[in-house]
Design a protein around this nucleic acid. Structure first.
Lengths: 187, 187
DNA sequence: TTATTTATGTTGGATATACAACATTCAAAC
DNA sequence: GTTTGAATGTTGTATATCCAACATAAATAA
């Protein structure tokens, strides 16, 4: 964080944008939210949005990292194909978040947070699947990405609600192996 | 209202200032509130306050007129001495406000509003009494102004709580005559 | 498929808001 | 009463936010 990030104007504007995004996430799916929706809701100029964020994906990652304190930045998951190791790391990031959820003040809108997390997982998986299966129609790619992101998130909820005798890694590694094998990862 | 008053920056900043003033009014008397208090509470620069308002008295009148919708601007009560007609007009302005209070969403902080109104009445009366009694010590002037403002406001509350068979003017004119007579208005 | 509308990303210029500094006034401390 | 500190009002400069406009892409309508 640079010094200018303490400028009250910047702080206020970022808060407006973030609040708008979260509110819209409770009403719509990520792919239905437009920059225009956000800036209208926040009552700021569109150029101002671009002063602060590169695009809506940048906003999504910032909200996850800075507001929800969960590391799901794309740059941390750069391998082009689905990979067991990366999926385990994704799962650990989510369970870290789940672990802290009971101590946090966000419990009131957990459903919105869940949606935001799944949206980002979906963004990550779509990117990988598009590269790995260039000839698959987009609808198939989206469908697979949705199943993966919901599955991974659901597993983290189950892990949290259980007695947590297994570490996240132990809990998920077998499932991930089966998942990837089902994708013909051994071709 | 000029076109620039729809500029979102202006709207937001004015809201921040107004909210800060109202919050501080619930904690302190008017004369204890400083510009610095307001700008700190609102998290804006002091120069920005002065961009919008001439001074704290300007803010007070604006809050009354624009937020609480009650006309107690000094410029409407310019006679230098206490005057029966002006006091009746003051009372009518307050009772107009009281009349609408039951239909408004401000009921939750009526005490703060009462304080703000009394503060402005006090400002008006201090100005007149200072001119009328130049040799009286300031503490006396303040004391008289306080009694007048509380008295006038209290009468409006009583009027509102009664069955309102009398118009505001009928209700207050006799009392005002007695008040002014007690000030030696007939010298 | 074509035409129209909407959204995105960008750019140059205007302006509201920020900052620091200053002079003066007022209030508090000694 | 004197000194010190805080508050007020002001000013010049920097910058975050605003606006309109443009080119392009994407979505929708015909």
């Amino acid at each position: 964080m640079s010094q200018t990030d303490f400028d009250p104007r910047i702080v206020r504007t970022r808060q407006l944008i973030t609040d708008a995004f979260i509110e819209l996430s409770s009403q719509k799916e990520f792919k239905q939210i437009t920059i225009k929706d956000i800036t209208t809701n926040a009552n700021i100029n569109r150029a101002t949005f671009y002063y602060h964020f590169k695009d809506i994906y940048d906003l999504l990652e910032t909200v996850l990292a800075d507001v929800l304190m969960i590391n799901l930045k794309q740059e941390a998951y750069q391998k082009e194909e689905l990979d067991e190791e990366e999926m385990v790391q994704l799962f650990i990031a989510i369970t870290n978040f789940q672990r802290s959820l009971s101590q946090r003040c966000h419990r009131g809108y957990e459903e919105t947070i869940a949606r935001i997390i799944k949206d980002q997982l979906s963004v990550i998986f779509i990117k990988k699947l598009t590269i790995q299966y260039p000839n698959e129609p987009e609808s198939t790619i989206h469908s697979m990405a949705t199943m993966l992101s919901w599955g991974l998130y659901g597993a983290s909820v189950e892990w949290r609600n259980g007695n947590q005798t297994l570490s996240p890694e132990e809990y998920i590694r077998k499932s991930v192996s089966y998942l990837l094998y089902g994708f013909g990862i051994d071709k």
